[in-house]
Nucleic acid binder design. Structure first.
Length: 596
RNA sequence: CGGGGCGUGGCGCAGCUUGGUAGCGCGGGUGCUUUGGGAGCACUAGGUCGCAGGUUCGAAUCCUGUCGCCCCGACCA
């Protein structure tokens, strides 16, 4: 390709909308153009990157025996209603774009394809003899994100590889799951990324084991906790840890303390000389379920700890056996709206009675009562008294006449000790999620009634796994991890071009002829070369080449008349002078050793 | 959904307080000069000031509404 025909539009000033470096560089280098919020055009340069990533993915998956297909993006609501996801995906924080056709039939624009593939497999596969099947597609997905941002990182239309596997039993699913983990590690390594695999929450998709692949980057949206020995890593949404011992109180009689205006743990400690671990923090949440019930929840947790709302939501969902559309702390406005008179936020005790709910307008009349494991080890503690401006000393949890369900709803954090080795502590770093693998089990096959006949002749639901890679996000994550002051430094394997040849002065015929000759040499040898044949000053061409991040640069310049060019490495910044033949030899060696 | 900010030529911005001829830099075009790190000079094209209403002799500027975009939050009492 010649730059004169490449539609290369680089910008000197970056539009104000971009605020992370990778987003800025992609716009500045002319890789993407925004059409509207969270919706981008992939320009020719980026499309080449995406195709290279795609090829790496396809090659690895093919070697694992995966099948490729292309599934419909427009999907009927009925299969989503069967799986129980239509409401939660279209209402509340719903992420699915939905529409009606002219007959009034409801359709959704696919954010993911479990329903479609399960439906199709159930219609086509009937016997254990046809299993396992592992099928994937690479195509555009649509998600109506609450807040699209960071360019391709969180956009409303994006390219994703999603794969689904079907098995006759759980152990076969586990085999494929670890096969996919292996494939993913190879894929991300080949793409030249620094990444880490971590335990993850399965979220709305549901299921048993799940692992995320994170590209480490300061701008990442996810917080990762990992042990220094590398044996444990998890998304904070999922992470578990061991907390410091509480500073035990030793009081054997209960009494009330005046705590005027001391609504926070911090206030309480400062004014009364308590340690946060001696306080039991009581939080009231309201959960909205799929059938629009408003369920109040009361949570007790040690005062120095925080609630993990993901764990909380999962716990409630399991307990009610319903999908949770929303879960949030109760506000003073809620209390007014519901007509509650005796719920003084900031002074609530774990023993607050269900009676406070009797007059609520739209809430359930009984709390779900939960307590985090962290309260187990404490004896006497400070807590709210359910009276404004007063707290109370409780002798122990058992003395209160309620028994909350004890579970893990605590947020693990950096500095906590590790579960697998008490001598290790958790460190935190940020990451960009670029891949996620799940063992779904039989959740979807059961709800969609997708079954096969097993060896003993009975029908049974398929065991399923699902496996995603954010292709367009991966491209931007690579930029976030590979750049310098001058621009992008693409890893060779996914660079839009492998080599750029710059003719310093297009009017100089010996420069032009030598560059053209080398260009043809490279193309003939299968090297993806770009020739900058524009009638521009050399300086501008250097700036552009650096900005768009081509790994190798050849310059036909001052010494072209004696057949010598410069070979420059974008990453190491090393420059060598050599003749036409040596350039070809050197680059052929480089690319052969990288792509055996 | 809540809070904040911004919409002025392709991009980055000024002008708005105090209403009166729409400006600057980059980018585009032409010419000359220049030619190894985003060149110089000259000329030139390009704008319903997001949109709709209102106030006024007169609105980019003031008022109302609306649309779009960006940022923060939606987290602990």
């Amino acid at each position: 390709m010649r730059v004169s025909r490449l539609m290369l539009i680089t910008l000197r000033d970056v539009p104000a909308e971009a605020d992370i470096i990778s987003h800025q560089l992609l716009i500045k280098g002319g890789f993407i153009r925004r059409l509207t919020g969270g919706i981008y055009a992939y320009m020719p340069l980026l499309w080449k990157v995406l195709k290279k990533i795609t090829l790496i993915v396809e090659k690895e998956l093919d070697s694992k025996g995966c099948l490729q297909s292309l599934l419909p993006q427009l999907q009927p609501s009925d299969i989503w209603e069967k799986s129980g996801r239509w409401k939660s995906y279209t209402e509340g924080e719903g992420i699915m774009f939905s529409l009606k056709d002219r007959q009034g039939k409801e359709l959704g624009l696919g954010p993911t394809h479990e329903e479609v593939i399960t439906q199709i497999i159930s219609e086509t596969i009937h016997s254990y003899k046809q299993l396992p099947i592992n099928i994937f597609q690479i195509q555009t997905k649509f998600r109506d994100e609450i807040r699209p941002r960071f360019g391709l990182m969180r956009s409303r239309e994006f390219i994703m590889k999603d794969g689904y596997s079907f098995h006759a039993n759980e152990s076969d699913l586990e085999l494929t799951y670890s096969d996919m983990k292996d494939a993913y590690e190879k894929i991300f390594t080949k793409c030249g990324l620094d990444f880490v695999g971590v335990d993850a929450d399965s979220g709305a998709i549901g299921g048993a084991a799940s692992q995320e692949f994170m590209v480490t980057a300061a701008s990442g949206e996810d917080l990762i906790l990992k042990s220094s020995d590398g044996k444990y890593g998890a998304n904070q949404e999922k992470a578990v840890s061991i907390i410091e011992e509480a500073k035990l109180l030793d009081i054997d009689k209960s009494y009330t303390i005046d705590t005027p205006d001391q609504k926070t743990i911090e206030d309480l400690c400062n004014c009364n000389n308590f340690h946060p671990s001696q306080i039991v923090k009581v939080l009231i949440y309201i959960a909205t379920t799929e059938d629009n019930e408003k369920q109040p929840i009361i949570i007790s947790i040690r005062g120095d700890q925080e609630v993990n709302e993901i764990k909380l939501s999962n716990q409630i969902s399991n307990q009610l056996n319903k999908t949770i559309l929303e879960i949030r702390p109760v506000s003073n406005e809620d209390i007014k709206e519901q007509g509650i008179t005796n719920m003084p936020l900031g002074f609530i005790g774990p023993d607050i009675s269900d009676n406070v709910l009797t007059k609520t307008k739209s809430w359930e009349k009984k709390f779900i009562r939960l307590a985090d494991k962290s309260i187990k080890s404490i004896k006497s503690f400070i807590g709210g008294s359910n009276i404004k401006d007063k707290h109370k000393v409780f002798i122990n949890f058992e003395s209160i006449n309620i028994s909350p369900l004890i579970c893990d709803i605590r947020k693990a954090k950096a500095g906590d000790r590790c579960v697998h080795d008490i001598n290790q502590t958790l460190d935190e770093c940020r990451g960009i999620e670029i891949g996620h693998i799940f063992q779904l089990g039989t959740k979807y096959s059961k709800s969609l009634n997708a079954t096969f006949t097993n060896p003993s002749g009975t029908e049974e639901p398929f065991w399923m796994g699902c496996y995603g890679i954010g292709i367009s996000r991966l491209a931007q994550a690579a930029v976030e991890q590979n750049h310098d002051d001058l621009g992008i430094i693409w890893p060779v394997s996914i660079a839009p071009f492998e080599v750029i040849i710059i003719i310093a002065n297009i009017k100089n015929t010996s420069q032009k002829n030598l560059a053209e000759a080398i260009y043809n040499d490279l193309l003939k040898n299968g090297i993806d070369a770009l020739l900058d044949d524009r009638d521009e000053r050399a300086g501008l061409k250097f700036k552009d080449a650096d900005l768009i991040g081509i790994p190798w640069r050849i310059v036909a310049g001052r010494e072209a008349n004696i057949g010598v060019v410069e070979l420059h490495n974008r990453r190491t910044k090393q420059t060598l002078s050599m003749d036409q033949k040596s350039v070809l030899t050197k680059l052929s060696e480089e690319f052969n050793s990288k792509n055996p």
